[in-house]
Design a protein around this nucleic acid. Sequence first.
DNA 1: TTGTAAGCGTTATCAA
DNA 2: TTGATAACGCTTACAA
Lengths: 389, 389
Amino acid sequence: MISCPKCSEVGSIMKAGYVRNKQRYVCKDCNYFFTLSNPDQITPRKNSRRHQTTIIDIARSTGVSNSTVSRALHGHADISPETRNAVLEMAALLDYQPNQLAYNLVKSRTNTIGMIVPEFTNSFFPNIIIGAHELLTEAGYNLTIMQSNESYPIEVSNTKAMLANRIDGLLISLTQETNNYDHLKVFEKRGIPLVLFNRVCDYVSAPKVVVNDFEGSFLAVEHLILNGYERIAHLGGPLNLLVSRERLRGYRAAMEKYGKSIEENMVIQGMFSQQKARIYGKYLLDLENRPDAIFAVNDSSAIEIMLMALEKGIRIPDELGVVGFSDNPESAYIGPGLTTIRQPTNAIGKTSAQWVLQLIESEEEMILPNEKVLKTELVVRGSSRRKDF
Amino acid sequence: MISCPKCSEVGSIMKAGYVRNKQRYVCKDCNYFFTLSNPDQITPRKNSRRHQTTIIDIARSTGVSNSTVSRALHGHADISPETRNAVLEMAALLDYQPNQLAYNLVKSRTNTIGMIVPEFTNSFFPNIIIGAHELLTEAGYNLTIMQSNESYPIEVSNTKAMLANRIDGLLISLTQETNNYDHLKVFEKRGIPLVLFNRVCDYVSAPKVVVNDFEGSFLAVEHLILNGYERIAHLGGPLNLLVSRERLRGYRAAMEKYGKSIEENMVIQGMFSQQKARIYGKYLLDLENRPDAIFAVNDSSAIEIMLMALEKGIRIPDELGVVGFSDNPESAYIGPGLTTIRQPTNAIGKTSAQWVLQLIESEEEMILPNEKVLKTELVVRGSSRRKDF
DNA sequence: TTGTAAGCGTTATCAA
DNA sequence: TTGATAACGCTTACAA
C-alpha cells in the first residue's frame, strides 16, 4: 500500500500520469502529487504536524533532485525549460513558500536592517523610520524596528537581539541614559555595519548622521534677540547627548555674539519628558525676575511652556517669546503657532539607511567622512514674532 | 605545526594549560582557546571570513561536545556545575552570540510577530504599534513592522515576506485598496495566527479588533445636532473599508433619529489623502447652499477643512461646525480646537497583540468571539461648541 | 543538464 | 552526566 508522503493517508492515493517515465501519484486527500523513485521514500516524513511544503517535497513530487528544484526556483541557467516548468508548476500546486530562515542560515545574511529608536511617541522618530523604510524597501531590504523606551538596559538587550538575529546592519539613535558604548563596539568588532543618527556619541567610530544643531540653535536664539527679547532662558536636554550639548553651544554663541549676558540660573539641562518639562517650565516662569523668552530643546517642552504661560495669563509673544526645536505637527497649530527649527526627518532616515547599505555593499573597509550633517530650517510663527518689531 | 582553528594563524599558538586532561592551546593572535582532541580538527574551518564564534568553537576550546555546550548555555539540568562554568566562561571569552537563525530553523518558530500597517504618517498607527510593542516585548516576542503604504500589491508582497520569514503570528490593518483577501487566507490554511485590526474585512475568518465606529459617529453627529447644526455633511472614507461604512451608518442613524434630512450631494466617500480632503472640502465649502457642519471620517480631513474655512473667512464654530475622528495630537491645538472621537490606540495595539499570543499559545483551534469592539470617546472642543447653545 | 553530498548553527533523541 | 548523530530547509561545489 502506498501512503501519501505528506499527509500519510493511504486510502486516497490515485495514479496521476507519468513524469519522466515514472508513475506519478496524487493524494486526493491533500492534493499532493508525488512519484516513488525509491521505495523507502514511501514513508512519510515524520513530525509532519503542520508541515509546510519544502523543496524536498517538490523534488519528490516532480521526480528530480533538491538541487534541481533550487536551481529552477531561482531561475538559474543550465536547466532545461521542461524541468523548470515542471518544478515551477509543482511549486505553485503545492503552494510552496520559501523558508527565508534556512536561506539566511546558509547565506549567513538576512537582508534585514535593524533600527533602534529611543521612543516613538513624538512624530520625530516615526518620520525618520518612514524615510529609512522607503529607501530600504526599494533596495530589497527588510526593516526590523525596536524601541529602547529611553532605557539603557533595554537598548543593550535590543542590540543583543539584533546581533542574535544576524541583521546585516544597524541604525541606532541612543537613549538619553546611554553612557557606556560597549554594546556598540561589538558591532565594530564583528564587522557589522553600524550607523548612528540623531542621538549620536563620540566614543564609537561609526558613521553618524546628524543635523546642524549648533547652527539651528544659534539661528533660533538670534531670531529671538532680533525680535527684541533680552533675557533668554534655555531649557536644554541631558548633557550626555551631543544634541543637547550642541544646542546649548548654539544658544551660548548667539547670546555672546549679541552681547547678552547669560543668567546661569536660567539655563537648565534635564531629561526629556513631559513631567520634567512642566517642572522646569514652572520654575522658569515662577522666577522672581522671569525670562522674557525661552528657547527649548524640543517642541514638546516648548508646548508645555506655552500651555503653562496660557494658564498663568502670560501673553505670548508679547510678554514671553518661545522657540522650540523639531517642528512637531501640533506646533503649527498651537496658539499663535510655535516658532521652531525644522529637522529634515525623512532625509535623516534616508541618509542613514543609504549609508548602512553602502557599508554593507562595499567589501572593503571604506575610508569615509565620519559624519553627515543635514540642514535645519528656522520656521517663524507667532510665538516669537513681536508686533512692534 | 598547529594552526589556529579560528584565524588559521600558525605562528602564534601557545600552550595554555590543561582542560579535561587535554593540552589546551591559545592563539595569541585572535585570543582563541582550543584543544586538539582529534588530529583532523587542526585544519581551520573553511570560509572563515568574519567567522562568528559558534557552539562548536566553544565545544572545541573547552574540550566537550556540542550538545554539552548547548545544554550548559541553556542552564539545563543534568550538567555538572564544573563543566557548565567552564563552558560559560569560554563563551564569554570568545564573545559568543547565539545564532537565532539556526535556533529558529530547528525550532521552526521565530518568536517574532509581524505587523503590517497601511501608513504611519499620522500618529494613529504609531500609537497602535507602541501598544502592541509594549505587550509583545514583555512577553518575550519581537515585532517586525512593515508598511504597505496604502498599496494592495505592497501589502501582498509584505505578507509573502512575513510568510517566508516564518513569523509566529501576524497583525494586519488593510490598505484602502484591498478588495481581494487570498493573501490572508494563506495564513488560515497554514495555521498561522492572524489578527485584523482597525481596517478589517468580513471575508476572512480571523479575529478582528475594532472600535465602535458606529456609536462614535452617531455621538459625533448627535453632538453637532444638539449644538444646533442642521445641514450636516459627511466627508467619508473609501467604502470597501468597514470603518468607512460603519461611520457612514452612524452618521445616517443620527440624522434619521433627529429627523434631519440628508442631502445626498453632501455625503462624499473617497480615499484617505490630504489632496482628496482638500478637493472634497473645497467642493463642500463652495456649494451654493453649503452645509453648516461637516463630520469628517478622520482628523486630517477635518483639519484640512478647518484650514480652508479659515482661508475663506468662514467662522468656526459659528458658521461651520467641524468634527473629526481619531484625536490626532494636533487636533487639540488647531484654532479653537477640533472636536473629535478619541480612539483607544494603545489598547487596540495591546488587544491585538494579546490575542495573537493567545492564538499561538493555545494548541487547539480556539472557539472564540470573533471580534473585539473597543470604546471610543467624544472629545468636545471649540470647533463644534456654539456659544448660543 | 542533473544528482550527490557537505555545510550553515542549532536542538533533540538516543546511547553510553 | 556526557557524546554521537540526525534533523531543520536551503545553497552550492563537485561529480556524473
